[in-house]
Design a protein around this nucleic acid. Sequence first.
DNA 1: GACATTAGTGACGGATTGTTACTAATTCGC
DNA 2: GCGAATTAGTAACAATCCGTCACTAATGTC
Lengths: 231, 231
Amino acid sequence: MRERPTSPMKAAVRRVTLAVDVVVLSPRAEALAVLLVRAPAGGRERWSLPWDAPRADEGLEEAAARIAAAVLGTAPAFFEQVGAIGDGKRHPGDADVSIGIVALMPASDEPPAADAEWFPLSALPSLAPRHRTIVERAATVVRQRVDQSPLAFRLLPATFTLSDLQGVYELLLSRRLHKASFRRALQASYLVEPTDEWRSEGRGRPAQLFRFAPRKRRGARRGVRFDLFSE
Amino acid sequence: MRERPTSPMKAAVRRVTLAVDVVVLSPRAEALAVLLVRAPAGGRERWSLPWDAPRADEGLEEAAARIAAAVLGTAPAFFEQVGAIGDGKRHPGDADVSIGIVALMPASDEPPAADAEWFPLSALPSLAPRHRTIVERAATVVRQRVDQSPLAFRLLPATFTLSDLQGVYELLLSRRLHKASFRRALQASYLVEPTDEWRSEGRGRPAQLFRFAPRKRRGARRGVRFDLFSE
DNA sequence: GACATTAGTGACGGATTGTTACTAATTCGC
DNA sequence: GCGAATTAGTAACAATCCGTCACTAATGTC
């Protein structure tokens, strides 16, 4: 019989340097874009994610909100952790451990701070390895959760057309969706309600504006779906 | 026009104490159970999650494997982060920030270390507030991902009956499933393959043993499902 | 050998969903 | 003014999916 360990919890504290690295995502010119800041001269890369160490009496999401607000002027409304990284990957501030946090916000015409810029996810500049990993994880997390929580609505303003909404889903899922199916599923979900406003977008028929207003669903629990596995 | 900030990244390092807190889950007597260790006398609680500070050249999952192995003798095969907590909640070692990591393992007859014990999730003893939060998050994460990744198979031995598998899903989802539907969906997913062994469990007809052997699926992508939102 | 118990499958009917094809309301070009 | 182009929105058909019921199969118990 194998030896069983005894008294295993001799836990010791160790002080490490910690960073909160923020991935702000927003639709920008028909693509999902991430907010980067110009890195100080002397570093190996010219751009980095906004980041900072959390302050003493501040939660991690709180720190992320502060960090994002420093670049954007206002904080995004939605934050979610995408994972902690503590392996050897290089971080711009040489933090031992990074907490990656993704923030979602609607497209905006407001420009970010002078030394910040939006980059499409598909055309990122060179980033520190840890930042590249965090961006990839953020994109993966958002894409995986998009049909388990109303993430997509965080990328839209308070009112939007159904075509806008479908466009965001197509961005997130990287594939085209069928209009009729999309709307039928949306209808059945009681997630949105129409406003009495319409938007004319130049050519074509004006579209009705909707708002996100989820009603309680009847608990029609479905069976197990084995076909949703990611890999 | 609002003032735009300039040069926002004046990031400063700060040293904090960090803990990796591990939630080992395993089916145990018809319920999902978590592994707890007896806390040293003098603390406010008598039990805690296994935890430690990560070592210098060790990734976070690696630390979790080491911590779990110290209690179990061998490390579970599957680990996944469930989130970092850095707010004021009390931690047994007073760590500033905790990384919560969930580990899954099959039911085992091997007893854990002398000062460790399995507790059903529904009957936990008093835990430090941060540990209680981490256990709740772990359970939530596992239950939410169960139909996006083959988590359930991590709670079973290498070969298992389809009734075993259905039982694990029922544990994770906290509801009964219909046998015929479950098997039809499983069949269509090409996730398991039959072995030529059968297991007789006392009464009733013997059951064929299967193993987890996912084949690549034809990419029949479905539309958006709005009815899977968690809350 | 009747019965209880667990495993496994076939098949019906209703619900869901992919698709096509249509109608509606606007701008643009002439 | 008026048709073409463009975008919004819907109806309806067909195929598939899925919940359910009903059955057969193989074992142990009495």
